[in-house]
């Protein structure tokens, strides 16, 4: 496997209901850095694609080669170890609401600490230092002990990003990270995702609805329609014709 490729998807298919594929044999290669935006209409399988990669959803067929290892075949402990290397950011943040910001950020290390130490909140000092550092980076240094449910949407997503990066992942996935946020906060969150990807030099894959936001922040855009990839290229190459192909119709482009 070439050192410039982090992730290779081969013939990835997924059907929730037999005979109704959501993903139709996706082939995709993702490099070791850069932000890849996956755009496409609702229900086209963007979210399923992202969730297949860390196996929150099990693909029906195909290979997910992550640094040469096929994640599609993993089970049990091997799967958990693979998940530790992939950070994920969610549309609705998915923070543990009743826990503090710090507990949520440190939960990114749960793949590495024993149940007893996790229960007693005994994390290695190095993790704790890193958690404070990350809170600084995402701009929440003032709130480590605040409960997650007392934060605003933008703040929660920052915690979500810090939690994912806390894993020291080799790949950062984000499933519609800005869809529940206002436009200004969306831009800030996308900036943060891009900068963190660059800083950690890891590839970032983001599902999004907002084509303009994708154009602005992505190094590469993958357009999906009907469970297949219909466009793949740099943002500059994405023309109105492609958008018609991805979303259908053209009235909305005016």
């Amino acid at each position: 496997m070439a050192a410039t490729t982090a992730l290779v998807l081969r013939g990835l298919s997924m059907e929730y209901v037999r005979g109704k594929p959501v993903l139709r044999g996706i082939d995709l290669e993702v490099g070791t850095e850069g932000l890849t935006a996956i755009i496409g209409p609702s229900g086209t399988g963007k979210s399923t694609l992202i969730r297949c990669i860390n196996r929150l959803v099990d693909p029906t067929a195909g290979e997910i080669l992550f640094h040469g290892q096929d994640l599609a075949r993993l089970r049990g402990e091997a799967l958990r170890h693979a998940r530790r290397r992939i950070g994920m950011v969610f549309q609705e943040y998915n923070l543990v609401e009743r826990l503090s910001v710090m507990e949520n950020v440190l939960s990114g290390r749960l793949g590495y600490v024993s149940p007893w130490k996790a229960w007693m909140r005994k994390y290695p000092q190095e993790d704790i230092d890193r958690a404070f550092e990350l809170l600084e980076i995402v701009g929440l240094a003032a709130f480590p002990n605040q409960r997650a449910d007392s934060l605003s949407g933008g703040q929660r997503q920052r915690v979500g990003i810090a939690r994912a990066v806390m894993q020291r992942p080799q790949l950062l996935l984000a499933d519609e990270p800005t869809s529940s946020l206002d436009p200004k906060t969306s831009v800030e969150i996308m900036e943060l995702m891009r900068d963190i990807g660059r800083r950690q030099s890891i590839p970032v894959m983001v599902n999004m609805h907002d084509v303009e936001l994708a154009r602005r922040f992505a190094d590469r855009i993958v357009g999906m329609s009907g469970g297949a990839i219909v466009f793949d290229g740099p943002p500059g190459d994405l023309a109105d014709d492609h958008l018609k192909g991805i979303y259908g119709g053209e009235g909305w482009l005016q």
């Binding site: 860390n54 929150l56 998940r83 530790r84 923070l95 543990v96 793949g111």
Partner: peptide, 10 residues
Amino acid sequence: QVEAVRATGA
């Protein structure tokens, strides 16, 4: 919330 914790490899 459970899914997010699972995704960390916990």
